[in-house]
């Protein structure tokens, strides 16, 4: 359960950026979470709600929302070239069974945008 710490980092990044833009109150944050990023969306939402309701984050409105945009995993087999959706970070090709596919997508964990005034 490291989503608490990651959410704290994310909120700090938004806070710093919001200050630069003169935004005092944030109503929505959109994050991209890859299936293979090792971040659990449910735990992330839980962490967000905990911070939102605690009132300890001055710029975050207590009815602010978190949007999670899912990024599906994509890997390419280095032997046969097949592109497939891997179940885990250690991608195994469904066609030839070779592990260690090259990951093309799914590891992203970033803040895409935020809205406020």
């Amino acid at each position: 359960m490291h989503e608490m710490g990651l959410m704290e980092d994310a909120l700090r990044m938004v806070s710093e950026d919001a200050e630069k833009h003169g935004i005092r109150s944030v109503e929505k944050i959109s994050m991209i979470v890859g299936d293979l990023s090792n971040v659990l969306p449910d735990a992330l939402c839980f962490a967000f709600d905990a911070f939102r309701m605690s009132g300890e984050i001055p710029f975050l409105k207590n009815d602010a929302t978190l949007e999670i945009i899912r990024e599906r995993g994509l890997a390419r087999c280095s032997a046969c070239g097949t592109e497939y959706e891997p179940r885990q970070l250690l991608a195994t090709c469904p066609d030839c069974g070779l592990p260690f596919g090259v990951l093309l997508a799914g590891e992203t964990f970033k803040i895409e945008s935020y809205e406020g005034s």
Partner: peptide
């Protein structure tokens, strides 16, 4: 209300 695109990797500080 304004929308600001941030495109910031959350793990960036750790890296």
């Amino acid at each position: 209300m304004v929308k600001i695109t941030l495109e910031k990797n959350v793990m960036e500080n750790n890296d």
